[in-house]
Design a protein around this nucleic acid. Structure first.
Lengths: 219, 219
DNA sequence: GGTCAACCTGACCGGCCGGTCCGGTTGGTG
DNA sequence: CACCAACCGGACCGGCCGGTCAGGTTGACC
């Protein structure tokens, strides 16, 4: 009696398709953001469009399912860091892991920023994530390792902010965010400045052939 | 060679409509970003849709015209700060003005981030802006007021990054970016930390009705 | 006032996308 | 094996949007 009453197990092909769908959607969202069409996700999974809507009645439901999983993984990371010996190092490690996730997933960047997604499951996940961050921050602050006026909410916002700072050059310098994470964390911690780990960015400097061929001969 | 004196002047209603169009589009883009439909812009300007495409053959051309103007205004600001007595204060002032522009204009945020807009005029404007920032940064760095390993390109990226850090809460705390600008500038400058000017952010804490109720406390 | 080109308008086109639906298929069960 | 409900597929719908065009209107100049 795995199911108390009137619950029938789903068919084998249904669970298989659901899994195919989830992984295909996760990949597509990560690469192209939440604007990927349902048709493309269905094609990647090798199923029909109707099958997508059978498993997830709305596109938002599909997004919420995948984003919720990613947020949960970050919560787990934070919980594992909650009793580290050096709370400041733990906080930095947590931020590093969070930004790595953001750098790999365009859809994740979109949902953390905008309050557009009011899916309750995702909201609840973000709330739990905020509590974990608050806890990590409190430990570091109580030991005097970071500024007293920094809160967990600051950290959550800076997580996305640091990533977006480096995002415009992510194609050519995918590790650039480490530079700004170090700079930001230097502003947060009470110690004296540390050297920045990544060289300064370049580009934006009129490299005529870097983008296309030669139709930029204006002026 | 087109004889400049022989070129016929445009008709009076044409120039008037062009002006109406520019201001309507600037307003619409600032409020809603570059995704506003051409139809809405035409309606705001009180003209037909076809008139928009008569003056700007493509939507991108219209965007470029308006964004170019805004970028130029920021360049002018930077040039005016180029011989200030305190180069660090000048740099901070410039960043403040830049983020104020970003906070007021959603479309501006979109184009500085993504390299999607390859309109040559806008590219050239951004390049000139980068040169101005480089100059401001060099002055501050040569006087030892900021870290030696900070470049003008860092400043350009941080401009957008600081704004986007506070953007998710911009509806309820429109001045929050000042907190992160101060924090970031503390990391950049060589002096000791200064107090943060804005209280720490709240929200994300399961306040079910906070989104619609108390948005009145903005200066 | 008369003429004409510049100008304006809004109906229209093609394409995309989220979501629906129904005929056909298939997996499980007795 | 036979049956049927769960399941699948993809044609289809309505709506939106950037861009085009034919036909009516109007400003400028003689």
């Amino acid at each position: 009696m795995t199911n108390s009453s009137a619950a029938r197990p789903p068919r084998a092909d249904a669970v298989r398709n659901r899994q195919l769908l989830l992984s295909a959607a996760a990949e597509a969202f990560a690469e192209q953001g939440t604007e990927v069409s349902i048709a493309e996700i269905a094609q990647r999974a090798g199923v029909g469009k109707g099958t997508v809507f059978r498993h997830f009645p709305t596109k938002e439901d599909l997004i919420a399912a995948i984003m919720g999983e990613i947020i949960d993984s970050l919560i787990t990371t934070g919980m594992g860091l909650s009793d580290a010996a050096d709370p400041a190092a733990a906080l930095l490690e947590f931020m590093t892991r969070g930004i790595e996730l953001l750098a790999r997933d365009r859809a994740l960047c979109e949902i953390v920023g905008r309050p557009s997604l009011q899916q309750p499951a995702v909201r609840a996940g973000i709330d739990r994530l905020c509590e974990v961050v608050e806890m990590l921050t409190d430990r570091a602050r109580r030991q005097g390792l970071i500024r007293q006026d920094i809160t967990g909410q600051d950290i959550v916002l800076l997580l996305a902010g640091v990533h977006q700072t480096a995002a415009p050059l992510a194609d050519t310098q995918p590790q650039l965010w480490r530079r700004y994470l170090a700079l930001t964390f230097d502003g947060i911690r009470t110690q004296h400045p540390q050297p920045l780990p990544h060289p300064a960015p370049h580009r934006f400097k009129f490299t005529p052939d870097s983008m296309l061929a030669d139709n930029s001969k204006a002026r």
